[in-house]
Computed example of a mutant assay.
Amino acid sequence: MSEALGRYEAAARNLARVRDYMQRHLGCTAKELAHALDLSGDQARRAVRKIRSEWAGK
């Protein structure tokens, strides 16, 4: 597996984990997410932005 593909799959897994956490913990902050899921603050913020965009229908 290429390194780029591995990063893509890891990002997809993180996004799914963040989406699940956000659905179970409405109103959580990116900082809480990062702590709960052992992600960096940047990873959590990127995922939150993407998911909120999806949920807004953009």
Rank of each mutant, 00 (worst) to 15 (best):
residue 43 Q to D: 11
residue 16 A to S: 14
residue 1 M to N: 08
residue 52 R to M: 09
residue 14 N to R: 15
residue 41 G to M: 14
residue 8 Y to R: 15
residue 56 A to Y: 08
residue 30 A to L: 06
residue 58 K to C: 04
residue 35 H to E: 15
residue 4 A to M: 05
residue 20 D to M: 11
residue 27 G to C: 08
residue 23 Q to N: 13
residue 52 R to V: 05
residue 26 L to K: 04
residue 46 R to F: 08
residue 32 E to L: 01
residue 9 E to N: 13
residue 56 A to V: 05
residue 35 H to P: 00
residue 38 D to S: 12
residue 12 A to Y: 04
residue 15 L to S: 04
residue 9 E to L: 14
residue 45 R to Q: 13
residue 54 E to Y: 03
residue 6 G to L: 09
residue 42 D to F: 00
residue 16 A to Y: 01
residue 51 I to F: 07
residue 30 A to S: 15
residue 31 K to C: 04
residue 44 A to L: 04
residue 14 N to K: 09
residue 23 Q to F: 02
residue 51 I to L: 13
residue 53 S to A: 14
residue 55 W to I: 05
residue 28 C to D: 02
residue 52 R to N: 14
residue 18 V to Q: 02
residue 49 R to Q: 13
residue 40 S to E: 12
residue 14 N to W: 01
residue 11 A to C: 04
residue 48 V to T: 09
residue 17 R to N: 14
residue 45 R to W: 07
residue 7 R to F: 02
residue 16 A to H: 06
residue 28 C to R: 03
residue 2 S to I: 00
residue 14 N to G: 12
residue 57 G to E: 10
residue 36 A to S: 15
residue 24 R to L: 11
residue 42 D to K: 01
residue 19 R to Y: 11
residue 18 V to Y: 02
residue 30 A to W: 08
residue 8 Y to S: 14
residue 45 R to I: 00
residue 6 G to V: 04
residue 26 L to R: 06
residue 30 A to R: 10
residue 12 A to L: 10
residue 31 K to F: 10
residue 17 R to F: 03
residue 47 A to R: 01
residue 5 L to D: 11
residue 56 A to K: 13
residue 34 A to T: 11
residue 36 A to T: 03
residue 18 V to M: 03
residue 58 K to Y: 13
residue 38 D to A: 06
residue 15 L to G: 01
residue 54 E to M: 14
residue 36 A to P: 10
residue 50 K to L: 15
residue 7 R to G: 00
residue 31 K to Q: 15
residue 40 S to Y: 04
residue 26 L to H: 05
residue 53 S to Y: 05
residue 9 E to K: 13
residue 44 A to H: 06
residue 37 L to T: 09
residue 39 L to T: 03
residue 30 A to N: 12
residue 44 A to D: 10
residue 2 S to Y: 02
residue 32 E to R: 10
residue 35 H to G: 04
residue 4 A to Y: 02
residue 44 A to N: 10
residue 1 M to C: 05
residue 39 L to F: 07
residue 17 R to M: 10
residue 34 A to G: 15
residue 4 A to F: 03
residue 56 A to Q: 11
residue 6 G to D: 08
residue 50 K to S: 12
residue 56 A to M: 10
residue 10 A to D: 11
residue 41 G to Q: 12
residue 7 R to Y: 02
residue 57 G to H: 04
residue 12 A to T: 10
residue 33 L to H: 00
residue 45 R to P: 02
residue 45 R to Y: 09
residue 10 A to V: 03
residue 47 A to F: 03
residue 13 R to T: 09
residue 42 D to W: 01
residue 21 Y to I: 01
residue 11 A to K: 12
